[in-house]
Design a protein around this nucleic acid. Sequence first.
DNA 1: GTAGCTTTCGTACTTAGTACGGTGGGAGTG
DNA 2: CACTCCCACCGTACTAAGTACGAAAGCTAC
Lengths: 226, 226
Amino acid sequence: MKTDSGERPARAPLSRERVLEGALAIADAGGLESLTIRSLAHELGVKPMSVYYYVANKSEIIDGIVDRVFSEIELPAPDGDWRTEMRRRSASARAVLRRHPWAIPLLQSRTHPGPATLRHHDAVIGSLRSAGFSMAMTAHAFALIDSYVFGFALSESALPINGPETVTEVATSMMPSSAPDLYPHLIEFTTEHILKPGYDFGAEFDFGLTLILDALSSPSHAGIRP
Amino acid sequence: MKTDSGERPARAPLSRERVLEGALAIADAGGLESLTIRSLAHELGVKPMSVYYYVANKSEIIDGIVDRVFSEIELPAPDGDWRTEMRRRSASARAVLRRHPWAIPLLQSRTHPGPATLRHHDAVIGSLRSAGFSMAMTAHAFALIDSYVFGFALSESALPINGPETVTEVATSMMPSSAPDLYPHLIEFTTEHILKPGYDFGAEFDFGLTLILDALSSPSHAGIRP
DNA sequence: GTAGCTTTCGTACTTAGTACGGTGGGAGTG
DNA sequence: CACTCCCACCGTACTAAGTACGAAAGCTAC
């Protein structure tokens, strides 16, 4: 009765790729804290220690999936209009980070960037440089845009998944039921604006990005662009 | 020989305050991952389970110290010039987050804000509102400035502690020794600009903040300020 | 078939959070 | 003074997680 095949769950033979794939799926489904070696092994249909044949430790797994997240972000085309390209890659970054919110704190702070991460930064710098930005101005723009995009994603990730309607419960749950007028501006602002039907926090993204891009291309930074 | 006093380490009698104080000290010294119930108890001179008399669980401790971090950030004065006040509180926030880098990912994402956090947001909103910003414009400015400040702090926390000189080793260690010209712009940018003696990433903060504040007060957002 | 590789796994140790139920000592009461 | 009670603290122990170590199972080449 011990048939050689047909007994096994017939799974793919495991590989570093499949390990990272599974890890990404788990992190997306339940956040970083749900990604454990055991949960990953279970997902892959193997026993925990098998994973360690393909990765040295858990931190290598995390480096790997962070780089995968970076690889999902659209690169700016080096020959396009830099404002258009920056807008595209920023919107893409934001969309990607909404899919992988657990990655936001890690994107900027991992000290072992992978190839996709390096390619991404290379493309952004290239886009600015070929638009005529000086070295110094490229550094300024790069830090500014990146800080804004990732900072916004970080703020946004605090709110539950999607849509303007869920904001209501978050905002109200954050308000202390006691202490009625300790925070008058905050309460006024929340009730009069945030909780109003039309408000969508996500829409703030475009305002800030446009303002930044406009300011970066304004003539007040003379001698910088061609 | 069993003198009532003099035998004991003569420590203060523990309290919620002392628990949070100790937790903050440990997180500052070794990062969030070094803050464990056991390390905290050791720091306080008690046994692990004693801590649980004052807090329900570890996450309550983290909420507590995050709020303490917020309380260190200078509040904008409601009657000062809004640009001056925003600059002051932004610089203060950055300085505080350099002292407590472990807190950055948590500041925006904790769903249980403490009193200091609420006071802080209240003051920022109040400052903008009394400068004449409309509700909508306050929301725009708030999201923009906060995203930038916290995003910058997040980027900055990736670099090791301080100073322009340490950048060198980080930048070089990030470069793959193989693959010479896969990332031409990144390499050019790093060697020609970042690694040059005078470069200080921290100085980028002021550039971006000034650009944002200038753009927010420009007349192109007409009808918004008085 | 058997040596030697590749791949997977069993066992077990360590660190962490924390449930549950004490225990000691001081305050209050008779 | 003895007794009770409660507050502050702790001992024990269970569970989850990362991972060291080395063995087993299967595969390839001869």
